[in-house]
Computed example of a mutant assay.
Amino acid sequence: MKLITFDPFRTLGTPGVRYIKPEHMNQHREELAGADWLLFPAYWQINSLHYVLKKRIFPSLSSYHLGHDKVEMTRALQTACPEHVPETLITSSDSYGISQILDLWNFPFVAKSVKSSQGMGVYLIENRQQLMDYAERESVLYVQKLLPIVRDLRVVVVGDEIVASYWREGSGFLNNVSQGGRVRTDLPVPDNALSLVSGLARYLDINHAGFDVAVVDGHPYILEFNRLFGNTGIPDLPKAIAAAMNRYLLGPEPPSSSDTSVSA
């Protein structure tokens, strides 16, 4: 099995991987063409690797395209499972879009930058001036119903497995661990939330993502998923992710060698 990675940190636990810098991709075209898997390319690489070289990439093409920004992601989720997506409006940041929000939405609500993660670019909009300030910064307005929750659920999917699920609880508006939220493993995780994520990931061919799920009165809502997610939520999570990725890429019995070569 020939594996080439463009992100050595995401493949530390995968044996026999060769690292090539993304910007040196075309200097190693023959090696890329002979590889079985190309791992963690940058977004700008995937068209050339998939459509031109016809190579298998990991994460999957769906993970890249559907997870590229919140607009693409939400529209896909609204089509796949509309009853599990919070009420969301995506509109322009011009006067029409602002008027549309003011006419149809009541304060407070959540507003997001379409390309953001780790809780950054997420705002609680409580009045007209905050909406105007948000619209001034963004070219696309993405507003979402504020759900009555004090914590949300992170479900990690790697390959065709759920490798971790845990609650995140913040002291304020955001629950992200990177924003000061704490991990809660002492609370039960609803089976219907896990079933929703597992079925959706298989249906959409998303094989490397951290799904954020809100549960309101027992009903799960997908807030978003992140193709490149943090792995510091629980002890040994990086090892569990690496093991699941190896099973997916290499089969149940990967080689014992752990050597990784590096190309400049």
Results as ranks from 00 to 15, higher is better:
P254K: 06
R151A: 09
I4G: 04
L187S: 01
V215I: 15
T185N: 05
G210M: 02
V110E: 07
Y19K: 08
S258I: 13
L3I: 12
V85S: 03
F173A: 13
Y64V: 02
H28L: 06
L141V: 11
G97K: 05
S62A: 15
T79W: 14
H219F: 13
K115W: 07
P254W: 07
V17C: 11
I222R: 01
A42R: 11
P235D: 13
P255K: 12
G251L: 07
S92K: 11
L61W: 06
G199N: 12
D36T: 14
G121N: 04
G233I: 02
G119E: 03
G119I: 03
N127R: 08
G251Y: 06
V262K: 07
R56V: 01
S62N: 15
L49I: 15
H24A: 14
I206L: 05
M245C: 12
V71K: 00
K239G: 13
T79Q: 13
H50G: 06
D205W: 03
V215T: 06
Y64I: 05
A164P: 05
V150D: 15
I101W: 00
L53A: 08
D191T: 13
F229C: 07
D36F: 06
R182N: 04
V157E: 01
Y123E: 10
H65Q: 12
A135E: 05
R182E: 08
V114S: 01
C81V: 15
E138S: 10
V150G: 08
E138M: 13
L61Q: 09
L53W: 12
M1H: 12
R247N: 07
N106F: 01
T260R: 15
Q27F: 10
V215A: 04
D36G: 14
L66A: 00
S116I: 04
F109N: 02
R75Y: 10
L228A: 15
N192K: 06
T74M: 01
A111N: 10
